[in-house]
């Protein structure tokens, strides 16, 4: 099996969107009332969360060797069994496998905050971390798009992840191994969960730009 050329990023610069964090926490514009104290608290926790997140990432390109209705066969013979994924990638001859992680410090701080009776703080840290992990993937998508645009290609607008639709979570382990995420201090449990908790795996397709 040919080794995949995995690229790793040690520090991904991301600036989360405050409004999206608030929305994730249940904020409704025009209905939810935030006092000055609330705002101060939220901003301070967002800033703290950002200091605790070290966004890192990895990605690799992988050709699709075979495209069946119920599965996608990658260049190294790996099969991803999913009708929905196959349909999602119907215009693609290539995929990008990617992952992001924020490191253990943020997860430890979330757990600690809740354990110490600072659950509100823990919740905000958790919301920020979830967004930063996603944004790290967004950042890689933008970067990859810039690289492949020169070749007249683009990434699918959406991403797919194991556990979505009919793509079994088991596939998380397959991609984990392909990206060698151990190198990024990510581990995977026997139920295919990533640790640290704020780690994400995703698949995007590469489409040809026409015209």
């Amino acid at each position: 099996m040919k080794d995949l050329d995995v690229k790793y990023f040690e520090h991904i610069p991301v600036v989360p969107n405050r409004n999206l964090i608030l929305i994730k926490l249940g904020y409704r514009k025009g209905i939810t009332a935030l006092s000055e104290k609330d705002n101060r608290f939220i901003d301070s926790e967002i800033n703290r969360a950002l200091l605790l997140c070290n966004a890192r990432g990895a990605f690799c390109y992988c050709h699709i060797n075979n495209h069946l209705t119920n599965k996608v066969v990658l260049e190294n013979g790996i099969e991803l069994n999913s009708e929905k994924l196959s349909s999602f990638l119907h215009n693609c001859n290539e995929v990008v496998l990617m992952a992001s992680t924020l490191g253990r410090e943020i997860s430890d701080n979330i757990a600690e905050a809740i354990k110490n009776g600072n659950a509100a703080s823990g919740l905000i840290l958790d919301a920020v971390a979830s967004q930063v992990a996603d944004m790290a993937l967004d950042w890689m998508v933008i970067l990859i798009n810039k690289i492949i645009k020169i070749k007249g290609k683009t990434l699918t607008k959406r991403r797919f992840s194991p556990g979505y639709g009919d793509l079994d979570l088991f596939n998380q382990k397959i991609i984990y191994d392909m990206l060698n995420l151990k190198k990024m201090d990510i581990s995977i449990t026997d139920k295919f969960m990533l640790e640290p908790e704020k780690s994400v795996i995703a698949i995007a397709g590469i489409e040809v730009l026409h015209g």
């Binding site: 608030l22 926490l25 249940g26 209905i31 939810t32 609330d38 659950a119 509100a120 919740l123």
Partner: peptide, 9 residues
């Protein structure tokens, strides 16, 4: 929805 989750907590 006048309070959101962090306020509730």
């Amino acid at each position: 929805k006048k309070y959101f989750l962090p306020q509730l907590i």
